[in-house]
């Protein structure tokens, strides 16, 4: 099996080590944003609907969770952008990353982090929907 680009660009082989140690963590950034957004939405809803039902009302809840969702989506988009750059797909159209080189590992982690950002984005939008679609607690 041959990848779309088997030629090796010498400069790419020399990505810095410091960048690499962070790229494993890059993988979990977007899903973590989803998780934090999810947990925060759940906690705030419990407080607004059960503990302090008169304080906020559903309208207030919608604005708070709406703002949180905006923040979360922005963070996920930023991660997606960073991982898209790391993947660097348009440079060599490689989406297989099966060669034993630092560049492949580097792009693979970017690719996977990008895909995870896409799923996290959809997941975050999904979680925000009930707040807007459900009018009451």
């Amino acid at each position: 099996m041959t990848g779309p680009a088997d030629r090796l660009r010498p400069d790419e082989e020399e990505k810095t080590i410091a960048e690499e140690s962070s790229s494993l963590w890059l993988l979990v950034v977007s899903p973590t944003v989803w998780a934090v957004h999810f947990a925060a939405s759940y906690a705030i809803t419990s407080l607004a609907c059960v503990k302090f039902p008169d304080l906020l009302g559903v309208g207030g809840l919608q604005w708070i969770i709406g703002a949180l969702t905006g923040l979360a989506l922005a963070a996920i988009l930023a991660t997606a952008l960073r991982s898209w750059r790391q993947w660097d797909f348009l440079e060599d159209y490689d989406h297989i990353h099966h060669r034993p080189r630092s560049e492949d590992r580097h792009e693979f982690l970017g690719h996977a982090a990008f895909l995870l950002s896409v799923v996290s984005f959809i997941g975050t939008v999904y979680v925000a929907l009930p707040v807007w679609l459900t009018g009451t607690c």
Partner: peptide
Amino acid sequence: LPAISLGFFSAASEAVVIP
């Protein structure tokens, strides 16, 4: 549980279908 809370979990249950 509050209907909105149920909605969160329903939404996440549908989202997990994607991966």
